[in-house]
């Protein structure tokens, strides 16, 4: 509620803090999307904490409390391995990707960590047809913590609505 006249109205300072935090998370998500769009996967991996959790899971599984994910990493070591392997060993056709993040909601938890959700859309362009396709549509459920270099992801769960993956998911979301 951004109504200063109501009884439990947040103070102007609180509102500014909330807006600044939201801007900070937004800036993080933009940097995150850029790293993936530019396929700088090593940079992407460093946006997680040492124990950072990363999972891309279908909404079908998530809603039924089934744990299987397309990419399932329990710490940054696994995330780095993923980034390194995709860059150095994986064979897939060249492609352009655009990660769009919006509808961000942010809440600060008591322990100082930050819970947030956002919607995401990934467009993909392959070089054998002219159009971009909507490769994945979903929602991030995030927990951020503040470390020396700024915000880091302690957890990002990517819950995708699209039932079918178009062939393969080569770059993370």
């Amino acid at each position: 509620m951004l109504n200063p006249s109501s009884a439990n109205a947040p103070s102007r300072d609180d509102l500014i803090d909330a807006l600044l935090l939201k801007a900070e998370v937004e800036a993080f998500n933009e940097a995150y999307a850029s790293a993936l769009d530019e396929q700088r996967l090593a940079d992407w991996a460093e946006m997680f904490t040492v124990n950072g959790f990363y999972n891309i899971i279908s909404r079908e599984n998530y809603d039924r409390k089934l744990p299987v994910g397309l990419i399932y990493c329990e710490n940054r070591g696994m995330i780095r391995d993923r980034a390194f392997a995709l860059e150095k060993t994986a064979m897939f056709a060249p492609r352009y990707l655009r990660h769009m993040v919006g509808n961000l909601k942010v809440a600060e938890a008591v322990d100082g960590s930050i819970d947030a959700t956002a919607n995401y859309v990934v467009f993909q362009v392959l070089f054998d047809r002219p159009d971009a396709t909507i490769h994945q549509v979903g929602r991030y459920i995030d927990r951020f913590v503040r470390e020396e270099g700024g915000l880091k992801l302690a957890s990002r769960i990517c819950i995708y609505d699209s039932l079918l993956i178009d062939n393969a998911l080569c770059i993370p979301v």
Binding site: I71, Y72, A90, M91, A93, A168, L169
Partner: peptide, 28 residues
């Protein structure tokens, strides 16, 4: 054990280290 199965699941599937390559090869 369940987590071990999930971690090892990174090998296979549409985003698996090995799986995504098979998918791409079939498309090719």
């Amino acid at each position: 054990m369940t987590r071990h199965r999930l971690r090892q699941g990174n090998l296979m599937g549409p985003a698996g280290f090995l799986g995504l390559e098979d998918n791409e090869a079939i498309k090719f």
